[in-house]
Design a protein around this nucleic acid. Structure first.
Lengths: 328, 328
DNA sequence: TTGTACGCGTTATCAC
DNA sequence: GTGATAACGCGTACAA
């Protein structure tokens, strides 16, 4: 493997000059530039990035945390982020926390050991107090999930609004017995806020709720199938169900139909996200502007890295939109 | 940021000893070990990985190429790979080639510039001749896609068999006018071989084929929808359709039903992969053992990195399985 | 406009 | 057992 030294020798110049050519510094004669280029080509030279990283104290790499990449919401987020990062010359390291606190903490070491220039969190497993100290090692941007205390750029959606408009839609359709089904309300602010929006709409309409109409820890198609099994056993099941994702909604629709229920007559179901799946299953759903939040988050990240300022809290809140189909 | 030097000073020892403790070398007194550990903790010291990389000439990072991470087949592959890599202390850099030759070539520089220890390709856009030279910079493993000439470990599925059993199933069901719909047969060996298997079954049964029953460049749900629109216009459409993915099949089923066709009576459709989507849409499909190929590929990769042997061709071929549902 | 010399933080090689 | 010293490959004050 050729080094910068080899190139210098072959070109009959110093390492400095070669380095200047590589990094496009001014004050190098065209002639020497050519000389250097020729030598580089001849030796098939490429700068060693480890050395560069050490010298420059930066890696041009960003870590993105997601619970699982197979969740379509997160894979979409990552797709856009990778694309944006690539445009600016950054790479992405993929970190799947698998909804585990410990796994998330392990990945935090990436920042501490200078393997990456910054972190983008799309979900948060630990308390912010656990994460906050790592800010002294590099910037962190939060995207999708959010917390009140974090002094970092945060890009998120108005999930209270999301919960509200979805629920309002069900109410407008005439359903009076409403169920709520989502992920973990305890640790996830997203799920929590949607519930707030849901309850707001329910209250405004003066509807009654039952404890048994709340279902939690539902993330996947399979969870949707299971949720229906639970719902089916109730003496007084809800007529309509607000869910936290299209996958869960799709699972519910499938299970309901398999059991001979009609959708939406016997059970109306609303999803969240507007994935391709939602169109296939004819799900009414609340659309999230994934590309926009992903792009915004990546821009804020790169800005943070390059400005080297101490991060400040900065909220970017984007709107949601109802898409009506036949499941409600 | 504390360095190894700072730790050494605080502990009253040399850098060497500190390094020995960090890297668990033998021949260090328990007492000094404690001294060092204490100093490290006090200074909140963490080894700088850029320096380590430079010194050790390795990055403990692996690049994985996929066309797009939003394709569920590839996101599943990546999910498993990341998990396996993590177990062995490696990280994953995600590279989306977006089905573009140039994008793929750009990413090859990662290996050349020593940003990663190795490359796993799950799709191949360029001719192998373009990729082969990079083998001198580090190991490459091919997974899912394949080529005849590559002297590297390759983990793949018997796609001829896949095409055959799917088609045979359609024939056994009594369909005689069969269509074929997949990605690009030119560049993708996977698509090509499935077609070989398809034709083999068709020929064995002595069925006739029409050129207009072949549809190509179909990858997504949307492509499935479009394909139906094309099929619908034919004077003599096929009765059953073999497709290269569950997404395409799902799109077809949706479009067919929307147009008032019955599935499978008016048009039978078989998918490929057995994703959650296949269950939801009741698709008969050919199951691929994704986890197994992902795990195998990652193991071969890490083995290649650690053994530092010149790679040899090594095929790992795994079987496929038919899953019957109501779409056929 | 070009070159010299030093440092980035680690680890491997020798001595002792 | 422990420590000095020399790489690893690059970038940049500073000097010329």
């Amino acid at each position: 493997m050729a080094t910068i030294q080899d190139v210098a020798k072959l070109a009959g110049l110093s390492r400095t000059t070669v380095s200047r050519v590589i990094n496009q510094h001014p004050y190098v004669t065209e002639e020497k530039k050519r000389l250097v280029s020729k030598a580089m080509e001849e030796l098939n030279y490429v700068p060693n990035s480890s050395a560069r990283r050490l010298r420059r104290q930066q890696t041009e790499t960003i870590a993105v945390y997601v619970p699982r990449i197979t969740n379509p919401f997160f894979s979409h987020l990552v797709e856009v982020m990778e694309k944006e990062a690539g445009k600016k010359g950054y790479q992405l390291i993929l970190c799947q926390t698998r909804y585990k606190k410990e796994q998330e903490r392990n990945f935090l070491e990436l920042l501490k050991t200078k393997q990456v220039d910054g972190l983008i969190l799309t979900s948060i497993e630990n308390d912010w107090g656990q994460i906050e100290p790592y800010l002294s090692y590099g910037p962190i941007v939060v995207c999708n999930e959010y917390t009140d205390t974090a002094e970092v750029p945060i890009v998120f959606l108005n999930q209270i609004e999301g919960g509200y408009i979805g629920t309002k839609h069900l109410i407008d359709k005439g359903y009076t017995k409403l169920g709520f089904c989502s992920g973990d309300h305890k640790s996830s602010r997203v799920a929590y806020d949607r519930k707030v929006g849901f309850l707001k709409a329910v209250e405004e309409a003066g509807l009654l709720m039952k404890d048994e109409w709340f279902f939690r820890n539902a993330y996947s198609v399979q969870d949707g199938l299971n949720t229906f099994k639970a719902l089916e056993k109730l003496d007084d099941p809800p007529q309509a169900l607000f869910t936290g994702s299209d996958e869960v909604a799709a699972g519910l629709v499938k299970a309901a139909k398999d059991a001979g229920w009609r959708v939406p007559e016997d059970l109306a179901i609303i999803g969240f996200d507007n994935q391709p799946l939602a169109e296939l299953m004819e799900l009414t759903t609340v659309e999230q502007p994934i590309e926009t939040i992903a792009r915004n988050a990546m821009e804020l990240m790169i800005e943070s890295i390059q400005s080297k300022r101490r991060p400040v809290r900065k909220e970017v809140i984007l709107p949601l939109r109802l898409i009506e189909r036949t499941s409600t």
